[in-house]
Design a protein around this nucleic acid. Structure first.
Lengths: 162, 162
DNA sequence: CGTCTTCATCTTAGTACTAAGATTAATCGG
DNA sequence: CCGATTAATCTTAGTACTAAGATGAAGACG
């Protein structure tokens, strides 16, 4: 009798705790991401580059010229957004558009010499800042966390390919 | 001799790997946060509430009336932002401003009945969505990750109180 | 007590991006 | 081949928030 009368309450308490755990996890996840993002953004401010602009340049720096749609999907912005951002980077001389030989609708975005020079200048510092931010964790912790976050992110994005 | 000639290269390779690990961690962190955020935002869309507006209401729902500055610091928006957002919520009837008895400059934000009713309606779903998102991890994994992320976030935010 | 400094909130101008839609081109299917 | 559908990028109007600054009040200090 005592067992049955406490069981529903115990189950509710366990659910409330699990909920609190999950909610707390999301809060600290969002906070960590924001804090690290703000740190890396600080290095971009002197160059007048936004985080998203930097992400575009980073993608082009590491992958070479990409179709606008490819960049868009990599950095997760809207189609109008990629046009806007590439326009801005092009105005600054960091990026240029190139024709696609096989599809007349499409355009490649590519770093200019100036853009490449800027990336050569600021990327090492960016990488160092990220490294420093993550250095409160051991390499093993970083790797484990990467695996867990990957799982989280993929599930939340609706992709279940592990 | 062989040891000394490979050591500098080995050190560089280890650094490059550590860098890659850290960079990768940040990418998956940002991706996970974004994906979960987008999932929770989907539930707010029918109510015409932005994530930040929801965050304000959530804070008031759980903590009761708060000074505008307190809300601001809790949800990490600018001072102009809190004014703007509370204005909007007030227009919708979800939040009201109240005078502070001890400081004529200050204002409290409080949920209205309508606002409280809305939170009663949507918060359980929100909590469930977060729980579901986190459910790919065990409770133990969630707790461990919370601890690691807390460390990360605090260090990045320049607060070292563990 | 009076002056200077700091604080709490609001105002204003501006920006980064989105959603919705338009235009042109490519693909698909009968 | 042709019409319908889909795709790639651009255009436009709009929104959510920020940075900078203003205003009035409170606190600090000599």
């Amino acid at each position: 009798m005592k067992t049955t009368s406490t069981a529903p309450r115990a189950a509710k308490a366990a659910t409330a705790t699990a909920t609190a755990t999950a909610l707390k996890l999301y809060v600290v996840l969002a906070r960590a991401q924001r804090a690290i993002g703000e740190r890396t953004q600080a290095d971009l401010v002197p160059h007048g580059i936004s985080i998203t602009e930097f992400a575009i340049m980073e993608a082009l720096y590491h992958k070479g010229p990409l179709l606008l749609g490819e960049v868009q999907r990599k950095i997760l912005v809207s189609s109008g957004g990629i046009t806007f951002l590439v326009d801005k980077l092009a105005e600054r001389g960091y990026v240029e558009r190139k024709l696609c030989a096989t599809d007349r609708r499409a355009r490649y975005a590519a770093l200019t010499r100036k853009g490449t020079a800027l990336m050569k200048e600021i990327f090492p510092g960016h990488a160092a800042a990220i490294c420093e931010a993550m250095s409160v964790l051991t390499q093993a912790e970083q790797k484990e966390m990467t695996a867990l976050l990957k799982r989280l992110g993929k599930a939340a994005a609706g992709r279940d390919d592990t």
